[in-house]
Amino acid sequence: MPVLYASLLTLFLILIPGIGIGLFNMKALFGIVVLYGAFLIFISGVIYRVIIWAKSPVPFSIPTVCGQAKSLPWIRQNKIESPHTSWGVIKRMLLEVLFFRSLLRNEKGRLKTGGRLLFYRNLLLWFGGVLFHWSLFIIIIRHLRLFLEPVPSFVEFIYGLDGLFELFTPPLLITDLLILLGIIYLFFRRLFDPQTRYISISTDYFPLMLIFAIVITGLLIRHVQKVDIMGIKAFLIGLFSFNPSLPKESNTIFYIHLFLVATLLSYLPFSKLIHMAGVFFSPTRNLKNSSRMERHINPWDYPVLVHTYEEWEDEFRAAMKDVGLPVEKEN
């Protein structure tokens, strides 16, 4: 059922610009209004989510580490897994954000004959994640050639590297294939792994399908129904200089591509996809493992009124002595 809902929603999203452009030619709506709206929602949504996280206090020092903490000088500390300095935290965070290091520890339990439960290292999820995220990153970088004038040399370099195989004209880009591979793996992992399937809901499938549709429409306008890149770049630069003009392009697939990207942008801040910003706010990752060196102050702490035994005895000493109760201090 979750898969059905997600696919219906994706189809519906494809149909909106399909009908809007294909039948009614609403270029101003899908080429300008929707894009500005989505961009505005994206920026303000991300800022909104980030500020909410920044306002949430972290009461306890809870880094999740899996290595030896800083201890006595003759015990070797695991500096990457269990950092006690800010610099160490930055290193651990970078490795996590760039290479998904924690996924390397992914293990899968299997019940062997005789009731033995064995755990196997399973790197497939890590590999699928790397394929997907890195391809997406490179795809975004090389899209900059349609936004920046003159095209920066690193964008040109990456774009050239991506089309290294020179298969077809224009060359088929490697990351387009790799991201499809990544999405297909991540999608079928949810479907075929019973435990993962059990916890997967429609909002787990939907982003994968949405990005899949974006990649497919992108491939179509690059290789099948080719579009006029000059016109599109002029149109995109116009949008970013607040001087929008109606795109001259009449290819419906191009507008579907744009609309799906706009959907992704406006959906991102309010969905699981905001892990893009959220990863930096995970207290289990962004805190130092230094709870034995520095005191972590709970921001909720407020002065509590206490009445210690000493104060209590001072108050009632005379009465206690009268009835013969033992006292700690005589006066």
């Binding site: 991300v46 980030v50 500020i51 972290v58 936004f147 920046l148 630069i237 910003a277």
Partner: peptide, 30 residues
């Protein structure tokens, strides 16, 4: 109250600078 104000604002500014790169890059290059 916003915790780690400096770091959060730095992060947001970096995010916006990257996101709006077409805006300033094209204006600067002329």
């Amino acid at each position: 109250m916003v915790y780690d104000k400096g770091k959060v604002i730095t992060g947001l500014v970096v995010f916006l600078i990257i996101l709006l790169s077409p805006l300033w890059y094209n204006a600067l290059s002329g």
